[in-house]
């Protein structure tokens, strides 16, 4: 039971990290609270559905393609929609709501509101003695962590990452690195959306796909990011682990709803003590 709970905790933490890192990256750089973040998760999931079910592509090939697709949509959205609202938090927020509505509506038109599902590409369980671990969960947890590590490498060990971190501090410094914000911002928005799309793509076989799936993902991303401190990448990672673990433990021993309630209460208590979140800047 303990090991199973740990695997669920790891899966849930990794999933939350994927959701929250993209969200907090976009906020940290552009001060945009992207209410359409959940819809990019949905786009990733639908992309996997289209690529595997009607097109018959292999699921593992479809995953990176779905992430890229979501990222591309993100770049386009940043250029076309969010650009005029740089620095206007409320305006950008309402704009992102509009984008969320449009994406939801578009998906409803194309795919109807019915639940769709993707056949499970991985089945079976690993068992060590008396411990049984479902393979598909191990796959989700493992690949999510790989993506997170790749993202971490991108941010901390590449020129682009340096520029990203510079923009978060000051656009002028970023210019000094020879990268214009007009290039970096869409790219960063795209990267955030790639992470969201991958979150959707990786969990497709576990959950069903429907036009409203974005809301739950958004709520998860919100809670993690608020706890970790808006715009803070390390904050998002640690908060994802804290919340992923509490979520798993309470879901296993009580119920999923109880888990959501408890994580909300946890976040509120921490915010009362430290309004900017665990790692947020005052």
């Amino acid at each position: 039971m303990l090991v199973q709970t740990l695997v669920i905790a790891a899966t849930s933490s990794a999933y939350m990290m994927l959701l929250a890192l993209g969200f907090t990256l976009i906020f940290g750089l552009m001060r945009i609270v992207n209410f359409a973040h959940g819809e990019f998760v949905m786009l990733g999931a639908y992309a996997v559905y289209v690529l595997t079910v009607p097109c018959g592509l292999n699921y593992f090939v479809a995953i990176p393609l779905a992430g890229l697709f979501a990222g591309l949509c993100g770049v386009v959205a940043e250029r076309l929609i969010f650009r005029p609202f740089l620095g206007d938090e409320l305006g950008a927020m309402i704009t992102s709501l509009a984008l969320a509505i449009i994406l939801q509506g578009a998906v409803m038109i194309v795919f109807t509101v019915d639940q769709l599902s993707v056949p499970r590409p991985i089945s079976g369980v690993l068992h060590f003695g008396s411990i049984y671990l479902p393979n598909d969960q191990i796959f989700v947890a493992g690949s999510s962590f790989l993506v997170v590590i790749a993202f971490h490498f991108l941010v901390h060990h590449t020129r682009l990452g340096l520029a990203l971190r510079a923009v978060a501090q000051d656009t002028e410094i970023a210019r000094a690195y020879g990268m214009a914000p007009s290039v970096i911002l869409p790219l960063a928005f795209g990267i955030g959306c790639v992470l969201a799309g991958l979150a959707g793509a990786l969990t497709v076989p576990l959950y069903a796909v429907n036009p409203f799936m974005g809301e739950a993902a958004l709520l998860k991303a919100f809670i993690v990011v608020v706890l970790g401190g808006l715009g803070s990448l390390p904050g998002a990672m640690i908060a994802a682990v804290i919340l992923g673990t509490t979520d798993a433990v309470i879901s296993v021993w009580f119920s999923a709803t109880m888990a959501t309630l408890v994580s909300f209460v946890l976040v509120v208590i921490i915010l009362i003590v430290k309004p900017s979140g665990l790692w947020g800047r005052a």
Binding site: F27, R31, V33, E89, L90, M93, L219, F222, I223, V225, V226, L230, S255, T257, M258, T260, L261, F264, V267, V268, L271, I272, P275, S276
Partner: peptide, 25 residues
């Protein structure tokens, strides 16, 4: 209300979701 702006939006979002969750559960 100790928070403002974006944080307040996020907290009220979560609070609204909790209310609905309570109705469901």
């Amino acid at each position: 209300m100790r928070t403002k702006g974006v944080h307040f939006v996020l907290l009220t979002f979560a609070f609204g979701e909790v209310i609905v969750l309570i109705f469901v559960e």
